[in-house]
Design a protein around this nucleic acid. Sequence first.
DNA 1: GTCTGTATGTGTAGAGTACACCTATCGCTC
DNA 2: GAGCGATAGGTGTACTCTACACATACAGAC
Lengths: 124, 124
Amino acid sequence: MSAQENLDGGSVGLPRAYLRPCLLLLLLEGGSHGYELLEQVRALGLVGADAGGLYRTLRAMERDGLVSSWWEPSQSGPARRTYELTDAGTGDLDQSMKALAETRRLLGEVLARYDWLALRRETR
Amino acid sequence: MSAQENLDGGSVGLPRAYLRPCLLLLLLEGGSHGYELLEQVRALGLVGADAGGLYRTLRAMERDGLVSSWWEPSQSGPARRTYELTDAGTGDLDQSMKALAETRRLLGEVLARYDWLALRRETR
DNA sequence: GTCTGTATGTGTAGAGTACACCTATCGCTC
DNA sequence: GAGCGATAGGTGTACTCTACACATACAGAC
């Protein structure tokens, strides 16, 4: 099961604005362009990632100074806007990852509490 | 550090609609009212949880059939609206927890990938 | 009476998400 | 050379969730 697929009523899922740190992480691994990043974030767990939203997010991150971009012609296909991480972007990534680690820890606590109760429910 | 406190620019944090599964979990442990649940979700990690939003969420969950409520007088203070989990709510909780477990797993993968890169950055 | 703590709400702006839709380039086939 | 699929980048818009402010009411202490 993917964390996005439960759209039936609740839509509990991935962290808020999770796309941003994912993009920053992928750009830390090396410069890339939107279309490629789309496939990469999908491989990273954001299986239903919205293309339009991704392009908008990249432009917003550039406005915020986290990434910089330039046009690059392609050998086979339309030109690409290539993105690169800035120093501010690296700093933001570091902070985001700390926040996500904390989120993961809290999730672990809640899930443990649930598992304990669910077990008692079964064996009642 | 709490996952909500990094409001400086990014605001990467807890999962979308995380309040709902937290409330359902707490109600699985026993019926309760809004004010008490507010303190409990704050203890659960949602340190800056918004009171207004919590009451709205509870009413929305009741509209969705996940909880039921009734007024109960208090010995010391205003009357309370006491909430209880319905069968549908228990089912929703089970599904949400599966989604959150998957979220936690994905977070682990992303964090591991970041840690590996961060380590290489340090030792370069 | 007024102040603090308990208890439940509403109003509203903004951020993030979901889904639909559009444009353009290139290589390939018919 | 027309049409097609893959590549590539984008806009429009409605909706949900969140954040912060604010309003109301009851009880007990002073």
